[in-house]
Amino acid sequence: MAKITFITQENETITVEGNSGSLMELAVNNNVRGIDGDCGGVCSCATCHVHLSPEHMETVGSPSEIENDMLELDDNVSEYSRLSCQIQLSEALDGLVLKVAN
């Protein structure tokens, strides 16, 4: 079980637990505002954009080329941007804090 915290654009903090699936699915199942996941997680819609904190970047890893191409054209992109549908939940992510980008 990993504990994940989402901070929305309205500064609402939502901490939830999960052990499988993607971070996008976790957010959608818990009604995190700003994470829509329209395409269901196939990296086609960029409606699950989050910012990681710098210290978590190494644990989570960098985006793939396809994900990067999507992020490049999204609003509020930064070096800490990821699409949460492309991050799988695991014990290693316990304590992760994500800021919803849009």
Binding site: C39, V42, C43, S44, C45, S64, I66, D69, M70
Partner: peptide
């Protein structure tokens, strides 16, 4: 298909 960055919509 897992990575499917299509533009059908």
């Amino acid at each position: 298909r897992k990575m499917n960055p299509h533009v059908a919509f």
